[in-house]
């Protein structure tokens, strides 16, 4: 495991729960989840692109909740240093909405025929990959029309994440904004909220 990480630093973890519209991946590193709104890519026969919308850290045994340990420690880091077992008793998971996939070396902006299998590796997308995938401003459709919680926040986070990687940020945001107006017909207020947060 350590070996492969050295070879591929973009590898984040593995799929541990999967469905047609999204997957859950467990991170190799505690707190090693990608940022909210980041574009990740799974392995498998139909490599799926996903936007991270939920990150959670909890005990590996759901019946045993973590207990407070830091009363006598000076800093938060000291808590982990004094309890080296924690890194193995806790896990960080993240959830991603599938927004497209690649097949036959083409990018497809719709759901893959089968979701990524369990234990498929999940990678961070490179700047080049982000740029290629987001070249089509419609890439947000599966995300924007999904029923995840805090939808507006996630879309805005995704734009904050992807926009700086574009050659022309402003043009990119305007293009995406127009698409969003189409995804939310009769609800420009929502588009406005997202765009204002995307520009922060």
């Amino acid at each position: 495991m350590g070996l492969s990480l050295e070879h591929d630093e973009t590898r984040l973890g593995e799929v541990v729960e999967t469905s047609t519209t999204g997957f859950v991946a467990q991170c190799y590193q505690l707190f090693g989840a990608p940022p909210l709104g980041a574009l990740v890519k799974s392995g498998g026969p139909y490599p799926a692109y996903g936007v991270v919308h939920q990150v959670s850290t909890q005990g590996i045994d759901p019946t045993r909740r973590p207990v407070a340990r830091g009363q006598d420690e000076a800093t938060e880091e000291d808590v982990y240093r004094s309890n080296p077992q924690l890194a193995h008793l806790l896990r960080t998971d993240f959830q991603a909405v599938i927004v497209g996939h690649s097949a036959e070396e083409d990018l497809r902006y719709h759901l893959p025929p089968t979701p990524p299998p369990i234990y498929a590796f999940v990678h961070m997308c490179s700047t080049e990959e982000v740029r290629m995938f987001t070249a089509n401003p419609a890439f947000l459709r599966p995300l924007a029309t999904s029923s995840i919680t805090a939808l507006e926040e996630v879309v805005a986070a995704c734009l904050r994440y992807t926009a700086p990687m574009q050659e022309d940020t402003e043009k990119f945001l305007i293009g995406v904004g127009k698409q969003l107006a189409g995804f939310f017909p009769g609800d420009f207020r929502r588009v406005e909220t997202i765009l204002r947060r995307a520009a922060l």
Binding site: E170, L173, I174, F188, V191, L195, R196
Partner: peptide, 10 residues
């Protein structure tokens, strides 16, 4: 950004 999007959509 909002101005530019609203003028071409809503």
């Amino acid at each position: 950004l909002v101005a530019s999007v609203v003028s071409s959509t809503a």
